[in-house]
Simulated assay, not measured.
Amino acid sequence: MTQPIKTAWWMIALPLLAVLIWSMNIAVTRYVTDYISPVSISFYRWLVAFLILTPFMLFRVIQEWADIRPHLKQLAVLSAFGMVMYQGVAYTAAHYTTATNMGIINAFIPVFTIFVSMLILKDIPNRYAVVGSLISFAGLIYVMGQGNITALVQSGGHLGDVLMIAAVFFYAFYGVFLKKWQLKIPLMQSLYVQIGFALLYHLPFVLWMGLDTVNAENGPSVIYAGIFPSLIAPLLWMLAVQWIGPNRTSIFMNMMPVFTAIIAFFWLKEAWTVYHTVGGIVIVAGILLAQKRH
C-alpha cells in the first residue's frame, strides 16, 4: 500500500520542483542586473546549456536530421518566442521592476495563452475564461499601481512591469505554437535545436553590444541559468506532463508568484506588501476561474 502513495508524491514533486527552479531564476535575473547585461546573460545561459547537451544530443540530431529538417522553420520560430524574446525581454525588465512583480506577472501565462489561442487556433474562450481573465487583469493593474490605480494612470505605468507583460505575451505565443504544430520530434532533440537557433539569434546583438566578462560576481548566476531553468526544469515539467497530464501540471504554475515572493523576501530583501497580497489573490483567483472548463 505504501508504494503507490510514494509514487504519487514523487509525481506531484516534479512540477513543484520545476516551478521552484523557474521562480529562483526570476530572483537570479533580478539579482544579477548589477553585474551583467541582459544580452550577455541571455547568450551565456544558452551557450552553457548548448555545451552541456552537445555530447549527448549532437550525434542523435545528425542521425535524425531527415526527420528534423522539415521542421526547422517551426523550431526557429519556437526558439525566437520562447528563448530569445521571452527571456531577453525578461532580463531587461529586471532592471526596472522587482522580482516579486515579475513572478506575479509571469503567472499570467495561462491567461495570455487563452487569448493567443483564440487568435491563432480560433479557439473561442468560454465565459469563465473571459471573466477570469478580466479579474486577473484587474489584479495586475492593482499591483502595478501599488494599490493606487489613479497614480498608475497619471504616471503612465512602470517600464519594468510593461516589459514583463510583453515577455509573458511572447511566451504565450510559444506555448500556442507548440500546441498548433505538435512536432513529431523527440523533446530533447527539439530543445537542442531550439537552443542552437537561440545562439544564432543572439549573434547580431553580441556583435553590436559586446559581451560582459564572466567573473566571480556573475558566474554562479550564469551557470545556474544555463543548467537549472534551461535544462533540468523543462525536463521535470515534461515528465510531469507525461505522468499526471497537461491540465493538472499547468495548475502548479500558479505557485510561481508565491515561490518568487518568498525567495525575493529572504534573499533580495524585497518587501511583500498589502497590495501584493490583495492583487496576488485576485490574479490567482482569476487564473483558476479562467481554466474552468464547464
Rank of each mutant, 00 (worst) to 15 (best):
P38V: 03
P38D: 03
V39I: 14
V39N: 13
S40R: 15
I41F: 07
S42E: 13
S42Y: 08
S42V: 01
F43L: 04
F43R: 04
F43A: 07
R45V: 01
R45L: 06
R45D: 03
W46Y: 15
W46T: 03
L47Q: 05
L47V: 07
L47R: 01
L47H: 02
V48I: 14
V48M: 07
V48T: 10
V48H: 01
A49W: 02
F50R: 02
F50Y: 05
F50A: 04
L51R: 02
I52F: 09
L53S: 02
L53M: 11
T54H: 06
T54F: 10
T54G: 07
T54M: 09
T54E: 03
T54V: 05
P55Q: 02
F56H: 00
M57D: 00
L58N: 00
F59G: 11
F59I: 11
F59K: 13
F59N: 15
F59D: 12
R60N: 03
R60Q: 10
I62D: 06
Q63K: 13
Q63N: 10
Q63H: 11
E64G: 14
W65V: 02
A66I: 10
A66L: 09
D67K: 15
D67H: 10
D67F: 09
I68G: 13
I68K: 12
I68H: 11
I68F: 07
R69L: 05
P70S: 04
P70N: 01
H71T: 07
H71Y: 02
H71C: 06
H71M: 02
H71W: 01
H71E: 08
L72Q: 10
L72C: 08
L72F: 09
K73Q: 05
K73M: 11
K73L: 15
K73F: 15
Q74D: 00
Q74L: 07
Q74I: 05
L75T: 13
L75P: 04
L75R: 04
L75D: 09
L75G: 09
V77G: 11
V77Q: 11
V77R: 04
L78Y: 05
L78A: 05
L78H: 08
S79K: 09
A80L: 15
A80M: 14
F81V: 10
G82M: 13
G82D: 14
G82Y: 13
G82S: 12
M83E: 09
M83A: 08
M83N: 09
M83H: 03
M83V: 04
V84L: 14
V84M: 08
M85W: 12
M85K: 13
Y86R: 01
Y86Q: 02
Y86G: 03
Q87K: 09
